[in-house]
Write a protein that binds this DNA or RNA. Sequence first.
DNA 1: GCAAAAGTGTTTGAGGTACACCCATGC
DNA 2: GCATGGGTGTACCTCAAACACTTTTGC
Lengths: 222, 222
Amino acid sequence: MMAYTYDHPHPAVTVDVVLFTIRDDDLKALLIQRGQEPFEGSWALPGGFVGIGESLRRAAWRELREETGVHAGYIEQLHTFGRPGRDPRERVITVAYLALLPSDRLEPAPASDAKAAKLFSLKNLPDLAFDHANILRRGHERLKEKLDDSVIALQLLPVAFTHSELRRVYELVLGVTLDKRNFRKKISALDVIEATGEEKRAGPHRPAKLYRAKNPHDVPFR
Amino acid sequence: MMAYTYDHPHPAVTVDVVLFTIRDDDLKALLIQRGQEPFEGSWALPGGFVGIGESLRRAAWRELREETGVHAGYIEQLHTFGRPGRDPRERVITVAYLALLPSDRLEPAPASDAKAAKLFSLKNLPDLAFDHANILRRGHERLKEKLDDSVIALQLLPVAFTHSELRRVYELVLGVTLDKRNFRKKISALDVIEATGEEKRAGPHRPAKLYRAKNPHDVPFR
DNA sequence: GCAAAAGTGTTTGAGGTACACCCATGC
DNA sequence: GCATGGGTGTACCTCAAACACTTTTGC
């Protein structure tokens, strides 16, 4: 067993990932069931220790992949949580990340030291380990803030999507209902999507036009 | 000499503080001159290692005080910077804080392992150690963002201030000039300041009414 | 009296909100 | 033919931006 020695005490540094997606007409967060103490068996955010030569963002991306099989699309730093005592083992400072992924690119597959990886509706969350409930809440708040002044909603949709689907993202994240016509006007003013020319038939009603992001920069890592 | 041993490598965790104030009709940042390697003699943000049982915010506040003699008023977490190699000694992850203080409550007094502590105009910054130039830039960006949708500007003013002084804070931080009448209307709509009844005489012109924050919560730690 | 900043309203344009009907389809 | 969601336009209101003159003082 290797040992690492320092002349002053060092906290441990972890990353944790709040990943949101939309599935079954619901905003969901990806959680894992811990396979180790502390909090063995509890649900928690995917995350883990930062490698000593690894960037924080890369660690977040790696831990998410290792514990859930999910390759994050969009990912941004959220906040750093370091209250002494938040981890019963030792002083642990965690850098939280917010990640978004369209449901069609997400199939949880528990691995590493997770017993299970599952999507949970925000309306029906289990108790979470550590201070993860708080981190998740902050992730949701950040997502709401960003939705208003950016095209981040495209990160939660497949490559081609209908206007209704886009509007539904806003409604689910913000927890409101939006006027169809006003929403079209707003999106049109942003000038960030364009019709693909295709249509989507989905039931006994007029088919919906499909759209895509105009600027590939709005949908990185795709 | 004590030694601290762990079974996997731990990065060091520091805090760094971007403190802004307004002095001599200019937006200034507080910097220290390093008294130790690495970057001995270089200018840098005040900051240092987080105590093993100390919260991040408290560490930021303490390091600022120890290195510059300044007791921060407003302080909020900015971002965490952890690129491997940003510190030549070892892996160091730093949690940056944004702090604001009215000039009348700030008298830099170098201490601890700083050779000097001084305010620098943002227009005339020296080269900075580590990635501190980048952190400082992010601090300024955050300050600009927050100015628009909060009453944070009050953190940069003395208890009583004139309308012109308040407007000048916005102008200096945002780097624009603002219309006197429109600005009054905007502030009035926010409903966060009230006249003290006093006036300020400052030269061969009509005296200006003095104002203060209505809600003490807008000026915490004062 | 003159120089200097304080103080004060109105007009205009843009953007957000409220609101109702026809269209194309599957069954 | 009917139920279902897709698609469209107008009126109103609020807020941001442009813009000029009078007031009070120190010298």
